[in-house]
Design a protein around this nucleic acid. Structure first.
Lengths: 334, 334
DNA sequence: TTGTACGCGTTATCAG
DNA sequence: CTGATAACGCGTACAA
């Protein structure tokens, strides 16, 4: 069947051990035998078996990433960066896609453990006690991506509160006094029982002595549809609105689209600022001003952290990536 | 350390064999011992080792998917569908991301073989002879997603030629006589040495006795930027243009955006039709008419096909998913 | 119904 | 420098 290390050994008149040694060039053999063995490998088209290797090694050179239903641009940024880093580190990545409600998360954790992945990156998912207990017991190295947690687990996140504050303050600085927010679903993003983005929004308003109430924010989902629906809802709740902060860019895209259909001019009649600074912002009409959370940077950091933990047992590290506003044409002065 | 099947066996006063049997409930044991063994597993928090299992099994319950740099919405559709199907089939998926030029493809194929994946889905990538020879030699089950090939390999694709033809014909039916195309990079999509979408475009024009020449199509990349650049380039090459067919929706998004910035009205001055019918089409200003290739359907089919091949050695199957035009507001009658 | 013993492909530990 | 040989954790004929 498939040629094994033993076949190579026989053909080369050496022992398995020697073949294994040159395979992982560990040294401890003559140049001559090395060349010979290498040649035989060529001839036999030998291909090592990573499964067998992993069994003795206790390393699979594979990490898992589990993530919920996210905007495709986010998912892609995360995946691309992580895969790139992993590949550089000689590892592969298994993707586990928990649907929105995250009931599958625990199952995936178990599955990944069964496959003996070297570590798992948990993205945009609240670390429940159940999960924490599990990874603690099994000692699976884990890093949280884009979520914080009260447990001692490494993480890389953005400062959602501060970013939302910044976005709102920006609007205020442009002269807006009546500003609303379209948020994503309440349940899904609860981190430690609060909504950092909503709180940042409110705080900025309060600090500038502007009116805020529950009427100023509408809760929906994270998609374009929700943005479109949110716009009319928000105007219903506070009719003299002049600016809107949307929890992410898809929502922002939805409101720009809905405004267009409704004949409301952006930014002349309403300004809108999004969040995430996803690629398409630049290509909307008008281009969407957004606060950049550089998800790819977060993902890259998370992946690098992961391998540091795997390889050198690095201590729990929590890192926060910076954010900034990138101005385009969806916000005007008031 | 970690508890193995042997630990369970000892504690339960049975042999490994018995434990193994109840583990895979193969029957051939008394209800009593089954319950007992199960209980012991619980107590010991036994977690099977998939690596060891794979070694004897010759099945890793893992498939690989290799794909190039694609639009994020495509990547996500592909991945989500494939992962869902795989998960239902009790498998995981390893993602391999070959950068645009695809030089890493061969390496990934080898890597996946080394990991002894049960099969690989190759997406949007030309099946070079080198790849084909390799999968033939190694007997890795493979299905092509969104690419055809002259080799006997299973595949699920769209009929790019027909779809492009349909898009162009649609424009013509709306009364347009001067229509151009913005295509993606020449090299990347060469399938059997031709560009089906470009050819479909040209054929539709010819069949309707309209003028076509190399001037009517500009070649660039597949992104928004390329669409934006393509627009001005195309107008330079044929100034009296009234309609544009773009090879994908991102390009279409780019031209809509560029047109807006240039003060060219869509669809009043130029109509544009895209391809792929990606989610965001609906939320552009104006919403982009596009020919739907239902990528998620393709991906689902591909994944299902993959498992049929793995499990029942299904013969080479080539399937083509249908396409249709979904009308929105970016095309007007002339 | 249950146990024994061997194989899966590598790596690692000792000897020589 | 090189070769036996024992793990690694599990499945499975074969035997009892």
């Amino acid at each position: 069947m498939t040629v094994t290390i033993l076949d190579v050994a026989k053909r080369a008149n050496v022992s398995k051990a020697t073949v294994s040694r040159v395979l992982n060039d560990q040294g401890g053999y003559s140049e001559k035998t090395k060349r010979h063995v290498l040649k035989v490998m060529e001839e036999l088209e030998y291909n090592p078996n990573a499964v067998a290797r992993s069994l003795t090694n206790k390393r699979t050179q594979t990490i898992g990433i589990v993530l919920p239903d996210l905007i495709s641009s986010l998912t892609t940024s995360f995946l691309n960066e992580i895969e790139a880093v992993a590949h550089k580190a000689g590892s592969s990545v298994i993707v586990c896609h928990t649907e929105s409600k995250g009931t599958k998360t625990m199952k995936y954790l178990q599955l990944l453990h069964e496959k003996r992945v070297d570590g798992v990156i948990l993205a945009s998912t609240i670390l429940k006690k159940e999960y924490y207990d599990y990874i603690k017991k099994t000692k699976i190295p884990m890093v949280l991506l884009s979520t914080d947690s009260k447990y001692p687990v490494s993480s890389v996140t953005a400062d959602d509160y501060a970013a939302a504050y910044m976005a709102t303050k920006y609007l205020i600085q442009q002269g807006h006094k009546k500003v609303g927010m379209i948020s994503g679903n309440k349940e899904e993003w609860i981190v430690g029982n609060h909504l950092p983005r909503v709180e940042g929004f409110k705080a900025a308003l309060l600090d500038n002595k502007l009116s805020v109430s529950e009427k100023h924010v509408v809760y929906g989902g994270f998609s374009c549809e929700d943005g479109a629906a949110g716009l009319t809802q928000l105007f219903k709740q506070v009719p003299d609105l002049t600016a809107i902060f949307t929890e992410n860019d898809e929502i922002g895209m939805g409101v720009i689209s809905a405004a267009y259909q409704l004949g409301i001019k952006v930014p002349e009649e309403v300004s809108v600022i999004g969040m995430d600074n996803v690629k398409f912002c630049e290509y909307l009409n008008p281009p969407l001003t957004s606060v950049s959370l550089s998800h790819s940077e977060m993902a890259k950091k998370a992946a690098n952290l992961m391998f540091e933990i795997i390889e050198s047992n690095k201590a729990v590290t929590n890192c926060i990536v910076p954010h900034r506003i990138v101005e385009r044409q969806s916000v005007s002065k008031k």
